[in-house]
Structures are given as structure tokens and as C-alpha cells.
Amino acid sequence: MASGGHRIVVLISGSGTNLQALIDAQGTPSLPNAKIVLVLSNRKAAYGLTRAQGADPPILTQVLALQPYLKANPGKTRDNYDHEVSKIVLAASPHLLVLAGWMHVFSDAFLREVEKENVPIINLHPALPGAFDGVNSIQRAFDAFGRGEIEHSGVMVHKVIREVDRGEPVLVRTVEIKKEDTLEDFEQRVHQTEWSVIVEGTKIVLESRSGNPTA
């Protein structure tokens, strides 16, 4: 292992509870020889930025929001935005890119730019593989349970491909839904599962990388 260990870039859009799990785990047996070198948000108000800035030591943060970018760059497109995000990510020389509540679907161009630099991309999704792809998956699973269509839901970390939430699973964990659950009860159980799964999934991918990372 070279000095500095594995370099991780995390992309967020919201409160950053899953980011916090990664921050707490870095450099511990749960995520050894790993360091978050950049947290990028597509929302200026994302509380995850505050979490990163308050870490010890503080983690570098950056914001690039789609609509302000398009407004400031007349004639530019969503693909141009994705290209700009890829430049920011790759400038941090990561060994892994983790999407932790990143609410923006990347284009093929972004995925190609990152993958040609041999940087794996993984995403945390609060559903089982092939079930409830996309947004509002917790609500949709809870409603499906209420209709008797499913017996449980789950959380997964998966590799990112063009098709939303359809990449190869890295780690999958079942989450129980109880008959007496409110939506809030179920949500909390999902989130608690997410906090462990995102750390474990990140560790699996880093350990699977061939060769030694460089700082």
C-alpha cells in the first residue's frame, strides 16, 4: 500500500447521513487505508457539505449545480455539465467514486470519462436488485407491502451503468417490513441498514481492485 492509501470521492445531494457513515469508517478496520479526498454536491444547501467540512481533518468540498451551471454558460447542455463533473472528480485522482444520495442521472459520456481512468463507480440504492428502481423507492416498497405484493425490501450497493439502478450488485441486504410499521419506522430501518451497507460495499470494491493504489 502506497502512502495515502485509497482515495475516495463521494457525490451527494442531501443531508449526507450515508456520507457520515463513510467519514466515520475511513481509516478504521471497517474501511482501512482509505481517505475521502473530495465531497461534491449538486445542491449548495446539502447538509452533507457541512458534515465534510466539520470532519477531522476537514474534507475538501465543491458544489456544481446543474441549473446555475446552465444559466451561467449559455449554450451549454446537460452533457456539458456531466463532463464538467467528470473533470472535477478525476482531478481528485480517486480510486473509487461513491454516489451516496446523488440525485442526478449521469450520461454515457460521464461514465466513459471516469471508467477509462479505471475508476469504479458505485451507488447506494434503498431497494433490492430489480425492484423499485429510481426515486421514492422506500415509499413504493412500503406501499407494495401494504398491498401484499412483497414480504420485505432491502438495500444494495451496485456498480453504476447507464440504466438507473440496474448495475451489478456489490452487496445486497434484506430489510424487514413489519405489519405494525409506519412509513417512518420502515424508513429508519432502511437508513440504518444503508449506513452499514455503504461502508461494507465500499470496502469490498476497494479490496477487489488489483494492484496497489497510489497517493
Results as ranks from 00 to 15, higher is better:
Met1Ala: 06
Ser3Thr: 12
Ser3Gln: 12
Gly4Ser: 09
Gly4Val: 00
His6Met: 08
His6Ala: 01
Arg7Asn: 05
Val9Gln: 04
Val10Phe: 00
Ile12Arg: 05
Ile12Tyr: 05
Ser13Ile: 03
Ser15Thr: 15
Leu19Cys: 07
Leu19Gln: 09
Leu22Cys: 10
Leu22Thr: 00
Thr28Met: 11
Pro29His: 05
Leu31His: 04
Asn33Ala: 10
Lys35Phe: 00
Ile36Phe: 05
Val37His: 10
Val39Leu: 03
Leu40Gly: 01
Arg43Ala: 12
Lys44Gln: 14
Ala45Leu: 11
Ala46Thr: 07
Gly48Leu: 02
Gly48Lys: 07
Thr50Ser: 11
Ala52Gln: 14
Ile59Phe: 00
Thr61Met: 09
Val63Arg: 08
Leu64Arg: 14
Leu64Gly: 02
Ala65Trp: 09
Ala65Leu: 08
Ala65Met: 12
Pro68Tyr: 11
Tyr69Lys: 15
Lys71Met: 13
Ala72Arg: 15
Asn73Trp: 08
Pro74Leu: 14
Pro74Ile: 13
Arg78Gln: 15
Asp79Thr: 14
Asp79Glu: 15
Asp82Ala: 13
Lys87Arg: 15
Ile88Glu: 11
Ile88Val: 12
Ile88Phe: 01
Val89Ser: 06
Ala91His: 13
Val98Glu: 04
Leu99Phe: 05
Ala100Asp: 06
Trp102Glu: 11
Met103Cys: 12
Phe110Val: 02
Leu111Gly: 01
Glu113Val: 04
Val114Arg: 06
Glu117Cys: 00
Asn118Arg: 11
Val119Cys: 01
Pro120Cys: 10
Leu124Trp: 07
Pro126Tyr: 09
Leu128His: 15
Leu128Met: 10
Leu128Cys: 09
Pro129Phe: 03
Ala131Gln: 15
Ala131Gly: 13
Asn136Cys: 03
Ile138Pro: 02
Arg140Tyr: 10
Phe142Lys: 05
Asp143Cys: 08
Ala144Met: 06
Ala144Arg: 11
Phe145Pro: 03
Gly146Ile: 09
Gly146Glu: 09
Arg147Phe: 09
Gly148Phe: 09
Glu149Asn: 07
His152Leu: 01
His152Gly: 04
Gly154Thr: 00
Val155Trp: 13
Val157Arg: 03
Val160Gly: 03
Arg162Asp: 08
Arg162Ile: 12
Glu163Thr: 07
Val164Cys: 02
Gly167Gln: 07
Glu168Ile: 01
Glu168Asp: 14
Pro169Asn: 15
Val170Arg: 05
Leu171Cys: 00
Leu171Asn: 11
Val172His: 03
Val175Asp: 12
Lys178Tyr: 06
Lys178Glu: 11
Asp185Tyr: 08
Phe186Gly: 05
Gln188Arg: 08
Ser196Ile: 02
Ile198Asp: 08
Val199Ile: 07
Glu200Ile: 04
Gly201Asp: 06
Lys203Tyr: 00
Leu206Val: 07
Glu207Ser: 10
Arg209Gly: 03
Asn212Asp: 06
Asn212Thr: 07
Asn212Arg: 07
Asn212Leu: 01
